[in-house]
Design a protein around this nucleic acid. Sequence first.
DNA 1: AGACTAAATGCAAAAGCTTCTCATTTATTG
DNA 2: CAATAAATGAGAAGCTTTTGCATTTAGTCT
Lengths: 144, 144
Amino acid sequence: MENQEIRDAGLKVTGPRVKILEILDRAGERHLSAEDVYRLLLESGDEVGLATVYRVLTQFEAAGLVERHNFEGGSSVFELNKGEHHDHIVCVICGKVVEFIDETIEKRQRQIAVEKGFEIADHSLTIYGRCNNPACSRRKEKGG
Amino acid sequence: MENQEIRDAGLKVTGPRVKILEILDRAGERHLSAEDVYRLLLESGDEVGLATVYRVLTQFEAAGLVERHNFEGGSSVFELNKGEHHDHIVCVICGKVVEFIDETIEKRQRQIAVEKGFEIADHSLTIYGRCNNPACSRRKEKGG
DNA sequence: AGACTAAATGCAAAAGCTTCTCATTTATTG
DNA sequence: CAATAAATGAGAAGCTTTTGCATTTAGTCT
């Protein structure tokens, strides 16, 4: 059961924490900001303070339960950590996010870190572009 | 002359702009936050408002004169755009930044974008780790 | 079950970073 | 040198995130 994950993180199993975990779980591959999580909580009729949402997300991040990403634009977004690292490709128009894993890139990164005398702690690769949604892609705009 | 770059960007050649460009130039590969630039201006005896620094940096970014990076931790940092794209490896302890270019990674990114149906606009790859500075590297901390 | 304690929560205030407003100043053009 | 649109400075305001503190709660021990 999921509550065990909270317990394993050394945190008390409280209403807000369980609910936030549920919301992230339901969000699947979507990335939610603290505001998003807060709004979804309210919509579910749960009275949780925004400060608590921030606190819990930060704790979950520290515990490795969730990952925080800082894409372009003010706020951080969060997603459940499913164990395997992945990078992101983000549509700059509609905000759609696709996750990917590429071992070639991972390997080169490790090599580069060694070359530069660094010991890798983490990395973040985000590609920004336009997705193939008609509203986003920029096909040759014929002299319309 | 550098002032021409400002003019080419469609901006008036003003004291603040020239000085900010100079500061970024002197900074070389170091990455400066808006605050950093502001402080350096004051230290040079130039009275420029922080708001102006932000405005000018944003304009320079829009004009392609500088690049903005959002590494972990609150604020954006800026560096002069020397024309060639590069990625970064950042020391999470001392903040040191090393730039690198890797064609293998670049190529894979283009392939991935195509696979996922995206048209690349930009990308950002940052590796976080500990540099080989004794104070930063985490050699097996022998007892004592 | 009831009591105890450290942790968690909610709220509002505060803190960073960045942008905006607007009166004043300045670069540029004729 | 006058005219004018753009740029500036100072502070207010905006956003996201954190913090302080009184109150509530989960987990533990009887």
